[in-house]
């Protein structure tokens, strides 16, 4: 499989005497949906910033789409990478939803007709077509993030980084973005998604989970394997998905269940 991201022996710190990463190594492959989890201060968001070159690494190497991330390549690489940030209010530029989605295209000098077409297409995709002439400020959090996603998708990225992009949304907003992510993946099998998240139910849908703790990769596997490490995750103050917790509590009460998923538990309990 084609490697999209390769982080090797990366060292980074915001200040001279305190390192966030000492020797970070990880890989992400084409078409993968990878969730990065870790408690506050573990280095997750720092990693997102390093991947788009907002901060410079001290040593080691980051390779994206087979190009080393450096001053010469950075603008080239960013053409293929989209990022959605945490706070929906901090990423609006346009006066209307339409202008906002078009912003990146304008910068790339896309002809006006073509731009109209792309904007409408992606607004429809994120289910915001009827809001095209509305002011972004008056939208709900979930709607704002969907607009931000449309603006990013309009640039046709091959790698989409979501940096806690649902953490300020209400549960409905979270679900909307989760569903949208799933749809995007179905439609475009080549799209690679790296999602930094606290939403443990989202993590269950990922192809792979990378648990970061104190700047190091602690666990790196499929969700069902990672969540078997209940004690490890608790020790680093991470949440466990509902069905895993219920399984644990039921077994501790002497009700023997094997399943770690919702439907499986229903089935077992109703036998």
């Amino acid at each position: 499989m084609e490697k999209v991201v390769e982080v090797s022996h990366v060292q980074f710190g915001y200040t001279k005497d305190k390192l966030v990463f000492n020797d970070l190594n990880l890989e992400v492959y084409a078409g993968e949906y990878v969730c990065l989890i870790g408690h506050n201060g573990s280095g997750k968001s720092t990693l997102a910033k390093l991947l788009i070159g907002l901060n410079e690494i001290k040593s080691g190497k980051i390779t994206i789409f087979n190009k080393e991330l450096n001053e010469q390549n950075i603008y080239d690489i960013r053409k293929d990478v989209g990022i959605i940030f945490q706070n929906p209010d901090n990423q609006f530029i346009g006066a209307t939803v339409r202008d906002d989605i078009a912003f990146g295209l304008e910068n790339n000098c896309v002809p006006h007709d073509k731009m109209e077409e792309i904007v409408t297409y992606f607004a429809r995709k994120v289910n915001m077509e009827e809001f095209l002439d509305k002011e972004p400020g008056n939208l709900s959090g979930g709607q704002k993030q969907r607009v931000a996603i449309a603006g990013t998708l309009a640039m046709n990225p091959k790698l989409l980084i979501m940096d806690e992009s649902t953490s300020m949304l209400d549960p409905k907003g979270k679900r909307e973005i989760r569903e949208l992510t799933n749809e995007l993946r179905k439609e475009n099998k080549d799209l690679t998604i790296i999602s930094i998240t606290h939403d443990i139910e989202e993590v269950l849908q990922a192809d792979r989970v990378i648990v970061i703790n104190q700047g190091e990769v602690l666990l790196n596997d499929k969700p069902e394997v990672v969540f078997k490490n209940v004690e490890t995750l608790r020790n680093i103050k991470l949440d466990i998905p509902f069905s895993y917790k219920l399984n644990e509590v039921l077994n501790s009460l002497g009700i023997k269940v094997e399943s770690n998923d919702f439907e499986g538990l229903v089935k077992e309990l109703c036998q």
Partner: peptide
């Protein structure tokens, strides 16, 4: 609710978190 549809009789007002749900199942 799913369990109740399948023959359980869990009082929803007693379900406040995972522990109390598990207790009702028990």
């Amino acid at each position: 609710k799913r369990l109740n549809q399948n023959g359980y009789h869990i009082a929803l007002e007693e379900v406040r978190d995972i522990d109390s749900l598990a207790f009702q199942i028990q």
